[in-house]
Amino acid sequence: MSLYPLFARPRTVQQAAQVLESMSSGVVVIAGGQELMPHVNHGVLQPEVYVDINALADLKGIREDDGLVSIGALTVHRDTFSDPLVAEKLPLLVEAMKLIGGGRQVHNRATMGGNIVAMHPLYDVVPVLLTLEAQVEVVRGAETRRTSLKELMADPRHGLGSEAILIRVLVAPMAADAGFAYEKLKSSGGAYGSANAAVALTVADGVIASLRLVIGAVADRLVDASEALAFCIGQSWSDALASKVEHCCAGLIDQPLSDHQGDGEWRKAMAGVVAQRAMGRAVARAVAQEGR
């Protein structure tokens, strides 16, 4: 190995996968660099090899594929949240991504893939993708595998491993009459929320018919509260139900994060607050749709 870091710019996904497979530790994949570079600049991470995947044209862009919305891993945030197909089919994703911190500079360079593989509990994209039960396509060596994002996030290694590349995300379109909301509670002017909640639901005849809700930024792992909130099905929205949702969701957080975004006890309480607020807004949206 060289004393200085090495650099590779593969031209195809296969080439990239082969490079990664042939390396041991110390190799990093770089796309926009928005996650990686702060760590490199401060010496937290000292890569031995950079594999630049920006030349992999297959990883760019958004299209419809077999009824799903396919978002390439190299698609930058600005291109995702201003894309007409995403706006029409995945409005919840647009709402959350516009709240990503770091300003236009970061929206212009940060990628979908980077946001996911960072596996950062404070980030805004994954709560939405889990709510919408997204799938991811991953290449490892000669194998291309499609798996649920949920499965990927549950991996005990907490990530893809350095030999794999995330190719794209696939999301089923939201129901046209869905109610949705992304709630991001910020305690300071910084980029991160202290508690986030993403919700997608449907309402029929004034009562909640289906519901998915994921809470982020309060624990090391994101919390899917959908099953715990099953008691909401068949109910209409009310202050009493909001209060039940709040207590239920706060109760799901047993090991809250304590960091710059707030201490643990408060974060646990805020998990309930954002869940309740997001649901209230989502129901209102769905009811307005139904009334049309």
Binding site: G33, M37, Q105, R109
Partner: peptide, 13 residues
Amino acid sequence: GRIAKSCIVLAST
């Protein structure tokens, strides 16, 4: 044509 923070852009990319 798009703004970026040059400290977190790797020149070689």
